[in-house]
Nucleic acid binder design. Structure first.
Length: 567
RNA sequence: GCGCGGGUAGUCUAGCCUGGUAGGACAACGCCCUUCCGAGGCGUUAGCCCGGGUUCAAAUCCCGGCCCGCGCACCA
């Protein structure tokens, strides 16, 4: 275990889940500090992706009925039969492999695959034999209700809950595009072999924004905000670019302005929570790498001790999901978009003659008439063909009239496209810890210090009596009480020497320590010590809450708030 | 899933080969001492991953499981 991971465990950032029962890979417990840190990161995410957008946040179930993922394509894309070679160890999707090698399309079930392997004596490309085929399903399944119950799945992404609620959300936004809907919550993937600490979990935390736009308007009114920001890009051909976002769009490296906007916004967010910009890049998915629903995807990747890892994916999901849910649910999920000016069109319209249709076609007459009205004709034709209940019927001219009409069209129904920035909160939390873990030397001794941004530090302030005896203790406790009443999360510690306590708080990332010393009793001042520089300034106790609030929400220097006491 | 290596107090680790009382360091807690950066003294707490087998006796040997690390594969 790395020195950092050892510290994170020991000091209460992360723990192995189910530890007393032997543990289970792919699950992690957030201890007091880790939980506080992730929540602070979530709040900053909300500020950027909800408050500063035309967006809202919702919360939908993690257990979903099976229909959701049948529609979304997750069931078919997740439930595969896999085969593994016993000599080279390679794993293949059975149906793909059989199609490629034998040219046969099969029903991907374990039995069929087994039969095929026996029948054709199927071998691995290396010549080795296959083990028993096994089911390979990345979604956790469950039964809803007692007895046989209804098949359900734990969601593998938070996004579907938003698509399901689309009609309600459209109503909420008064039918006006663009709008965004966010969700922060748990998602589940039954990974085959989760590893690397919190990097690949079976239960993890996502923050996703689904930003719905008109398909022809993939722009953002605040694009200028990031247009001149330079980013490190790696396109799908592995070609690096270091250009401004405006240039990237103009040169076609990034497909559209909206994608570029969210890349800029993502970068801003990541820097604010303390990701190291020199270890950040945006990489475009290769054609064979994209999920089934995306036409384009850019990942934010960071360099960590595990190499470059993906922490954010920004995907253009187009109208894939809404269309799928329209098909499977039968609900109309389109948006009516008004034209700026109504369009006048001349049309030739068919007017059915029911008096004649009725006696001849009887029960089918009504349906035929309906189909006839839907038809558009270019010219005065003699007959048309309609399809009723799978039967093609030719209707001759005596049964209908053709009228020329002029119609005003005020708008059209479209299926919006969705751009999805999707954040892996566990990985981001871990990255922030790794990028900010540092060692330096104070008075000849090495110290470990977590240089977290002040606004995300789990314990922002600690109050310490210089000596662990009265009257220092009482005074320090009094100050703790005052700060807590002011809403500042404050810790108290009088154990061990003062230096030892400073180191403890340096290690967990507490940016400011308040020390009650002898002078406190002469002039009602205390010292504020800065974690990063170990400098101290003297501040009046009564001013402490406001000074700390200012310090914790900015990067201002403590020297702006008081006389240097020691340095 | 496969292969290799590993799992001993909160943390790091010695002991395992060659079976027989589990040792250290740091941390934590209490008291004493101490006017500012892991000081010192005394004391305390706390451990062989789980299950089975071999044996008079298992941290140690054998089998299975779980977990961790690395490589392969997987990561819609």
């Amino acid at each position: 275990m790395s020195e950092l991971m050892e510290m994170l465990t020991r000091r209460g950032y992360f723990w192995q889940s189910f530890e007393i029962y032997g543990g289970m890979a792919g699950f992690v417990d957030y201890g007091p500090l880790g939980n506080a840190l992730r929540r602070k990161i979530e709040d900053i995410w909300r500020k950027h992706f909800v408050i500063r957008e035309r967006a809202v946040e919702i919360d939908t179930p993690t257990v979903c009925v099976e229909e959701v993922f049948i529609a979304s394509g997750h069931v078919s894309c997740f439930t595969d039969v896999a085969i593994e070679c016993e000599s080279c160890g390679r794993v293949f999707r059975a149906d793909h492999y059989i199609k490629e090698v034998l040219g046969i399309e099969i029903e991907p079930t374990i039995e069929t695959v087994k039969e095929i392997i026996d029948e054709y004596d199927l071998k691995c490309v290396c010549g080795g034999r296959f083990r028993e085929p096994f089911l390979f399903n990345l979604m956790f399944s469950t039964k809803i209700g007692p007895g046989k119950g209804k098949m359900g799945y734990l969601r593998p992404e938070t996004a579907q809950g938003i698509f399901i609620d689309f009609r309600r959300l459209l109503e909420y936004f008064r039918h006006k595009l663009p709008f965004g809907v966010a969700q922060i919550g748990r998602a589940y993937r039954n990974e085959i072999s989760p590893r690397q600490g919190v990097v690949r979990l079976r239960e993890f935390n996502q923050a996703e924004l689904e930003y719905f736009v008109h398909p022809k308007e993939k722009r953002h009114e605040n694009f200028e905000r990031y247009a001149n920001v330079k980013v490190k890009l790696l396109d799908k051909n592995d070609k690096p670019h270091e250009v401004t976002l405006r240039e990237a769009v103009e040169r076609g490296i990034i497909c559209h302005e909206l994608m570029a906007y969210f890349i800029g916004k993502t970068r801003e967010f990541l820097l604010e929570v303390g990701v190291d910009e020199s270890k950040l890049r945006f990489r475009q998915h290769k054609d064979d790498e994209r999920a089934h629903y995306a036409i384009d995807c850019w990942d934010a990747e960071v360099l960590t001790s595990y190499g470059w890892i993906e922490i954010v994916g920004i995907a253009d999901r187009t109208d894939y999901d809404l269309k799928k849910h329209m098909e499977h649910s039968g609900e109309d999920l389109r948006v009516f978009v008004q034209f700026e000016r109504p369009i006048r069109v001349k049309k030739r319209k068919i007017v059915p003659n029911m008096k004649k249709l009725g006696p001849i076609y009887r029960a089918k007459a009504k349906e035929i008439a309906k189909k006839l009205e839907e038809l558009e004709v270019d010219d005065y034709v003699d007959s048309v063909t309609v399809e009723v209940d799978g039967e093609k019927i030719e209707i001759s001219r005596e049964f209908f009239e053709i009228e020329e009409v002029e119609e005003e069209i005020h708008g059209e129904k479209i299926v919006p496209h969705v751009i999805e920035p999707s954040f892996g909160l566990d990985r981001i939390t871990f990255t922030v810890l790794e990028h900010n873990f540092d060692k330096d030397v104070v008075e000849g001794e090495e110290r470990r210090v977590l240089r977290l941004k002040r606004w995300i530090a789990p314990i922002p302030v600690a109050v310490l009596p210089l000596l662990s005896r009265e009257p220092f203790i009482s005074k320090a406790k009094e100050i703790v009480e005052m700060l807590r009443n002011e809403g500042i999360y404050t810790e108290y510690d009088d154990s061990g020497s003062i230096g030892r306590r400073y180191r403890r708080f340096d290690e967990i990332g507490t940016p400011f320590c308040i020390t009650v010393d002898h002078q406190t009793f002469e002039d009602s001042t205390v010292t504020i010590r800065d974690r990063d520089t170990t400098k101290q300034v003297r501040v009046k106790i009564e001013e402490l809450p406001n000074v700390l609030k200012e310090l914790l929400s900015s990067e201002r220097d403590i020297e702006e708030f008081g006389e240097i006491f020691r340095s």
